[in-house]
Design a protein around this nucleic acid. Structure first.
Lengths: 291, 291
DNA sequence: AGGTATACTTCAGGCAAACTGAAATTTAAT
DNA sequence: ATTAAATTTCAGTTTGCCTGAAGTATACCT
């Protein structure tokens, strides 16, 4: 069997015009090169060089040189692609995230990641937590960033950080200038606009506040528009409130259980691609301080 | 370094869906396959199969499978081309020959040769002996079939057979019905049309006959046309006379030195291509009986 | 032409890598 | 739970490449 490395030896000797220089290039001794060349010629049953001074190729040698050079080029290129795919230097990363993380955390992380890995392509979908779960479960997206999924969904959840809810109200609202954290009692009689993120709040007091089907919104933009319009108040994770306008306030809440958990969603028994794995490391490192 | 054979192992296992079958295909034991696979995953730093039952690939494994399959296809194809070139199964053979050999001997040999080696291309030039030498010396053609070249021309000559000259005359010529071989004396007073082949005849008597610049022709067709027209007689190698029409005769010549030597012309210190080498064998075998 | 330097090949020994067969472990199935 | 099958691990052997030294051929120089 003709070894690829024997062809590489041949091409190098042909290019150098002598064994000594080729040996140096290949970090071998001349004797090793000589033996490899001899073996190659035996396997082919024909000579590749005119004399044993390797300065001139036979006709077959010249033909071989063309074919082997091409072979090695393709070979090295393919091996590089494999290497790139395996180390995550190259590949496609499809991910879905809840909007707050997508807007506040991911941009910086993704920008750095792409700069380090020019061969990587990223596709980001931002949507609510349950859609993130669905996209990961369905394989549309490899990685999700959202709250914990239902058990038995075939998904794994790796917690990243916890994020306390805040009360969002207009700057001219009665509660806006409170210095103390807001209690559930403070919200008695207020109209609360429910939303998907806040629905994970387990506190019975909150449940009572949003029990009746008053008003709810799915999208953060419309949610805030409703608050701005004076339609009511809402609760949002802290991260979703960092870029509110001057006309709105985000007030801490006294109940420490009013928080959401954000983590990474993956499909069970699906080894992540190397790109995904690398980005995962990056996310964990990038959110360690928030935890 | 990732070996090509390791990739072949991987692709086979992926295709078979298990190690045992792949081991059988590759004439290895399952343990060898297992170790190669393990080593490959270590070199990549990532898993290629989801479980250690090799039935499902990871995302990286699937990507690798695509790349590696393509790599192996190209690799095997290139190696086959090399093999074909080295064994003369494929390639181009450019050869030049004197017309008599080209017309009488080569057609059969070439036809057989091409049937055995479908990948081979042949280009045949037929011209006079000295042009054959020039074409070989100039590299236009790799192999020549002709008389011996001048020494010092950088050509090698391998004798194939000797071919006695015959006297060509019209069927109604006075000499046409002779039963005895023709002597130089018989030709006294006859007009001899000289030609390149006959100019190698060394006999002083013949030299005397064609000394004065009477008539000469280069091409066999025109030479015979002249004889037919009654312009004179000529001497041609026996091989060139086997297909004369009924109106011409080819008479043996008494002088045993009136013969030409035909052989193979190659460039000195140029290793013949494998196709050429193979055809050379064929010529030698095909002309052994004539010698 | 002869001597010398250079280039290549050959040889023997060392060493690393790969393969085999047996035993252990893991996984799937009844 | 037990059994059967598949895979991995382990130890030992073999294979084959590489090195360094010695030998041979070639080219260059005087």
């Amino acid at each position: 069997m003709i070894r690829t490395e024997a062809l590489r030896v041949f091409v190098n000797v042909a290019d150098c015009g002598n064994i000594r220089d080729a040996a140096e290039r290949l970090f071998r001794t001349p004797s090793a090169i000589s033996m490899t060349l001899k073996q190659l010629e035996e396997q082919l049953g024909a000579r590749l060089f005119e004399t044993d001074r390797k300065s001139t190729l036979t006709a077959l040698g010249a033909e071989m040189h063309t074919i082997a050079t091409e072979l090695l080029r393709d070979h090295d290129r393919a091996l590089d692609r494999i290497e790139a795919a395996a180390t995550g230097r190259q590949g496609r990363l499809q991910l879905a995230s809840v909007p707050s993380v997508a807007a506040e955390l991911l941009p910086g992380l993704l920008a750095d990641f792409l700069t380090e890995r020019p061969g990587v392509t990223i596709e980001l979908v931002d949507t609510d937590s349950s859609s993130v779960h669905a996209l990961v479960a369905g394989g549309t997206v490899e990685l999700g960033i959202a709250g914990p999924p239902d058990s038995g969904s075939g998904l794994t959840f790796t917690p990243l950080f916890r994020d306390p809810f805040r009360l969002v109200c207009r700057a001219d609202h009665a509660l806006a200038d409170r210095t103390e954290p807001v209690t559930w009692d403070d919200l008695g009689g207020q109209r609360i606009i429910s939303n998907e993120a806040a629905s994970t709040i387990g506190a019975a007091e909150y449940r009572a506040l949003v029990k009746s089907p008053a008003l709810s919104a799915r999208n953060v933009i419309s949610l805030l528009a409703l608050v701005r319009a004076g339609a009511g108040l809402t609760l949002l994770p802290r991260l979703a409130t960092v870029s509110l306008g001057p006309d709105l306030r985000a007030l801490p809440i006294a109940d420490p259980t009013a928080q959401r958990e954000v983590g990474v969603i993956l499909r069970q028994s699906r080894t992540p691609t190397p790109v995904c794995g690398a980005f995962l490391d990056r996310i964990v490192r990038g959110t360690r301080d928030i935890r």
